[in-house]
């Protein structure tokens, strides 16, 4: 069920990228899609009633969630941060040059 919701979230994000004409909304769509996948990945590594996968002084932990997806998702979030910051900066510069956020009016390159 939750996996399904992740998929719905992904579709919302992709819809945002494909259908919106505003650059900022496209970036938001990208962020939503990205976090849908991150969520899915963390859920894959989750165990029911699991604990954080670190050593603790009170004995060994038996019910441990899988740490590897968490590490990968943390990395993916950082990468997403870098990409988003770059795209936002590009969008600001584009607005400075073209005076609009509308992709339909930012299309001088074609052919």
């Amino acid at each position: 069920m939750i996996y399904f919701l992740c998929l719905v979230l992904l579709c919302v994000g992709i819809y945002g990228v494909l259908r919106k004409r505003n650059i900022i909304r496209m970036i938001l769509g990208l962020i939503i899609a990205e976090h849908a996948i991150n969520l899915l990945f963390v859920l894959i590594g989750y165990r029911l009633n699991g604990r954080a996968p670190i050593l603790s002084p009170d004995g060994p932990i038996l019910q441990m969630v899988d740490p590897l997806p968490q590490a990968l998702v943390l990395t993916a979030i950082v990468i997403g941060l870098a990409t988003t910051a770059l795209l936002v900066a590009l969008a600001m510069r584009l607005h400075g040059k073209y005076g609009t956020y509308d992709v339909a009016r930012i299309r001088e390159l074609k052919g």
Binding site: A82, A85, L86, A89, M92, G96
Partner: peptide, 19 residues
């Protein structure tokens, strides 16, 4: 890195070295 991204966006002078 994070603070310089923030500064770059605030100052509207893009610094493409952020990553």
């Amino acid at each position: 890195g994070l603070f310089s991204i923030f500064l770059a966006l605030v100052l509207l002078r893009i610094n493409r070295g952020d990553k």
